[in-house]
Design a protein around this nucleic acid. Structure first.
Lengths: 132, 132
DNA sequence: GTACTTGCAAATACTTTGCAAGTTT
DNA sequence: AAACTTGCAAAGTATTTGCAAGTAC
């Protein structure tokens, strides 16, 4: 995990903590990162979290996830996947689906050259379905 | 178009101007709405734009569109559709594709009950492809 | 030792709120 | 006339920046 520190980006305890949280939670907001790390590392500054999130995005270690009704979330870059978003509890889950047919379904007459697609599914997670 | 003013929402010149802009541009940000309306209507306040955007979202006349690397955009509610987003010029285009197979493709073992899906395609629009 | 990173404080950007005056129905 | 909307100013929230001190390599 720490091996992510490939490029021109130095390893600091702050950065390790951020990467570990992302790995643990999968999808996490700046505020959540800050609050959780601050518990064990009270000197941490919010500005540092922002700077590191930005540096990691520039280095393509992480992705930004924008979801209607939620704070922006960040996730470690991994295999392409889509997201299942629970409308009740807000939980986000990864799901691997094949989007190649989807990308082909863009009508040729649009003339748009698709490079990538991003799919969000909204609904109810298993846990929230059982809660009546 | 002005007939959108169904519910408990009064017709004001500000609101008409916002709806007309959305109809004209398809997808537009708060800043763009403010700047464009302000040209012909200098007393307009940014707070009014925000209040109206929020009122229209509550009344489901408009949708919010969150796109990585862009300001939030708003669009009039119409038939379900997906978005083609040009990585070069940022232009957003609507496209109608059938997402029913897509929604069925969420693996049954996730236990997630899909209600709706949202697809964004990233790539190059026709105009930007020809610009070398 | 050099270059980069941190934390702080200040600056900037984005969005919401309270309220008096004005508008819509 | 009642209820809602506007514009303004202030408050609130989110994000970025400059810089001196500290850290990674």
């Amino acid at each position: 995990m720490e091996l992510l520190k490939a490029n021109n980006i130095k390893i600091t305890p702050q950065r390790l903590a951020i990467v570990r949280l992302m790995d643990e939670y999968g999808h996490i907001s700046v505020r959540e990162i800050f609050e959780k790390i601050k518990e064990n590392f009270p000197s941490l500054s919010l500005a540092t979290v922002y700077k590191n999130i930005n540096a990691m995005m520039e280095n393509r270690f992480i992705n930004e996830l924008k979801i209607v009704g939620q704070e922006n979330k960040y996730e470690l870059v991994k295999e392409r996947h889509s997201h299942l978003i629970c409308r009740r509890c807000g939980h986000i889950e990864d799901v691997k689906i094949d989007t190649s047919k989807l990308e082909e379904s863009v009508p040729a007459e649009t003339g748009f050259a698709v490079e990538e697609s991003s799919v969000q599914f909204f609904g109810l997670c298993r846990a929230c379905q059982s809660k009546k």
